[in-house]
C-alpha cells in the first residue's frame, strides 16, 4: 500500500448525507473528451450495479440517516434495471439521476413521471450539456449529440419533469455571467419556463487529462490549506460512492483503487486522506457533484 505523505489532511465523514451509486459503472453510449472517469462503450473498469447489489446499501444507508441518493455512470439508463432501482430507492430517500439524455424517449419519460408522482420524495434528473450550440457541445460530447440531448430534455419537459442542465466549464466562457445567461436563454427557447442550471469545473483526470494535461505536482492539499471550519466544505465529508467493486470515498476517485474504503458503508466511516490532486480541485473550486 502506498504511504501517505506527512502533512496530508484527513477528512472525517461528519454525516452520510449523499450516497452515490455508479449504477452504470464506467459504461456509456458516449465517450466525452472531458469525462473524468473515461466512461465509454468499452470501459468496464466498473460494471453495472444490479438491483440485488444495491438493496443492502439502501438499507444500510437508511440506518445511517442518509438524506439523498444519486445515480450516475456512464449512462444510468443503459442499466436495464435503472427504473426498478428507482422504485426501490424512492421509498427510502429522494433520488437524482445524472444522464446524458440520449435514452430519454417519450415512453421512458412518461414512466419516470409516474415514478416521480408516486414517490414519497423528490425524483430529479440532471442532463449534461457542454455548449449552447452544436459547434461547442459536439466536439466534447460527440457528433450530433447537441440535438439528441435537447430532444431528451424536451421529452422530459413534455412529460412534466424539469431537469437541471449540468454544464462543465470546459470552455472558460461557460462559467461567465454571459455564458450562464446564454444557457438560460437556450432553455427558455425550448419552452422551459423554469430553467434550472448547474455549473461544474472540470477535473484534470481521466479523458480530460489527455485533453488538457494532467495536474501539476504543486496541486496537492496540505494540512495548512484547511479553512477556518476545517474541511467540511468538501463533499467527501458527507458522501460515499458505491460501485460494483465496493464503496469509494467520492464520485471522482473511482478509478483509483486507493479511493476504495470498504465493501459495506460501515467500513467507510473513518477519515480519508486527501492525497489525490483531484482533491485540490474540489477544495479550490468548491465542487459539489450533488445539485
Amino acid at each position: 500500500m502506498p504511504t501517505i505523505e506527512a502533512g496530508t489532511p484527513r477528512v472525517g465523514l461528519r454525516s452520510l448525507d449523499t450516497l452515490w451509486f455508479q449504477v452504470a459503472g464506467t459504461i456509456c453510449n458516449l465517450a466525452c473528451t472531458h469525462c473524468f472517469v473515461s466512461a465509454s462503450p468499452t470501459n468496464r473498469t466498473h460494471e453495472f450495479l444490479s438491483l440485488e447489489a444495491i438493496l443492502p446499501y439502501l438499507e444500510e444507508a437508511a440506518a445511517l440517516g442518509v438524506k439523498e441518493f444519486y445515480f450516475t455512470g456512464g449512462e444510468p439508463f443503459l442499466n436495464p434495471e435503472m427504473e426498478s432501482i428507482l422504485e426501490k430507492a424512492l421509498p427510502v430517500a429522494p433520488a437524482t439521476v445524472l444522464t446524458n439524455g440520449l435514452l430519454l424517449d417519450t415512453e421512458r419519460c412518461r414512466r419516470l413521471r409516474r415514478l416521480a408522482d408516486q414517490a414519497d420524495y423528490s425524483l430529479d434528473f440532471r442532463v449534461s450539456l457542454d455548449g449552447y450550440a452544436p459547434e461547442t457541445n459536439d466536439p466534447i460530447r460527440g457528433e450530433g449529440t447537441f440535438d439528441r440531448i435537447l430532444q431528451g430534455v424536451s421529452n422530459l419537459v413534455e412529460a412534466g419533469l424539469n431537469p437541471v442542465i449540468t454544464v462543465t466549464e470546459v470552455y472558460e466562457d461557460n462559467g461567465t455571467v454571459r455564458g450562464k445567461e446564454r444557457f438560460f436563454e437556450l432553455l427558455r427557447g425550448l419552452g422551459i419556463t423554469k430553467p434550472r442550471l448547474k455549473m461544474l469545473p472540470v477535473f484534470q483526470i481521466g479523458a480530460e487529462a489527455e485533453r488538457t494535461g494532467a495536474y501539476e505536482t504543486w496541486q496537492r492539499l496540505r494540512d495548512s490549506d484547511a479553512l477556518d471550519e476545517g474541511w467540511s466544505h468538501l463533499q467527501c465529508s458527507s458522501c460515499r460512492m458505491v460501485t460494483d467493486q465496493g464503496v469509494w470515498v467520492c464520485p471522482i476517485l473511482i478509478n483509483e483503487p486507493q479511493g476504495k474504503m470498504g465493501d459495506a458503508l460501515a467500513e467507510t466511516l473513518e477519515p480519508f486522506p486527501l492525497d489525490h490532486p483531484a482533491c485540490w480541485t474540489c477544495h479550490v473550486y468548491g465542487v459539489s457533484c450533488k445539485t
Partner: peptide, 13 residues
C-alpha cells in the same frame, strides 16, 4: 476512446 478499454481498466492516469 471507443476501443482503448477493451480488456483494460482506467487506473489513475
Amino acid at each position: 476512446k471507443l476501443t482503448v478499454h477493451r480488456g483494460m481498466a482506467t487506473w489513475g492516469e
